[in-house]
């Protein structure tokens, strides 16, 4: 089987140790007999933005009646909801119209491949703090932006995506993401099972006692 490693935007900014762990995971996947080839999703720097426009718009419709109680929500919820009114109907429709273009890019990237491979996250989990930022290699960004960068685009395209542990960095888990064709979850499970037969990352347990 062949897997397309998505070069470009989704892996160009990474925490250095997370990046190194990702390279190791790519090698492990290749060692299971999978051929790894480089592919591109040329405009996926826009896909996350388009995804957020849709999320904001749909969230605001649901929460409009409660917008007055915005202070009662936690910081993240309040800031997301607070940002929502600035998405116009035209922005929302533009994002919907772009959706098939992103779907088409995934379709092209998948030509000759069973699945695409990306990091599941380009940074480590954030430290709990009033302002949560993470290191993406040379600069810090909001954890939400870093956490969703590789994931929201595939909510937008509706692709099946499987995230699997691929190691530990500073004691925290890092993972890879396999993205497949619509309705082809089966191939992702096949690839994932082969990876987990050859590795033990998924068997690691946190040091917290199970029944403390």
């Amino acid at each position: 089987m062949r897997v397309g490693r998505v070069r470009g935007h989704l892996e160009e900014e990474m925490h250095p140790a997370v990046a190194a762990a990702y390279e190791a995971a790519v090698a492990e996947l290749a060692a299971t007999g999978v051929e790894i080839v480089d592919v591109e999703l040329p405009t996926f720097d826009l896909a996350a933005a388009a995804g957020w426009w849709i999320i904001y718009a749909e969230m605001l419709s649901l929460h409009e009646g409660h917008a007055a109680f915005i202070e009662d929500r936690d910081e993240m919820g309040a800031s997301l909801l607070g940002a929502a009114p600035f998405v116009s109907a035209a922005d929302y429709l533009r994002a919907l119209r772009l959706r098939p273009l992103f779907q088409h890019e995934v379709e092209v990237a998948l030509e000759g491949c069973t699945a695409l491979l990306t990091p599941a996250m380009v940074a480590l989990p954030p430290v709990i703090a009033p302002e949560m930022f993470v290191d993406v290699g040379g600069r810090e960004v909001s954890w939400l932006e870093a956490g969703c960068r590789t994931q929201v685009p595939f909510n937008l395209t509706g692709s099946p995506a499987l995230v699997m542990p691929s190691g530990l960095v500073d004691g925290m888990p890092v993972s890879i993401q396999l993205v497949g064709r619509p309705r082809d979850e089966a191939s992702l499970f096949t690839l994932g099972a082969a990876y987990q037969r050859a590795t033990t990352h998924h068997l690691r347990r946190p040091p917290v006692p199970a029944h403390a």
Partner: peptide, 20 residues
């Protein structure tokens, strides 16, 4: 439109398909 009670938990009528 926000005063339509049945719309409170309704989904939007948007066509979306993961298959292009």
């Amino acid at each position: 439109l926000y005063a339509v009670p049945e719309a409170r938990y309704e989904e939007p009528d948007l066509v979306y398909d993961a298959v292009l």
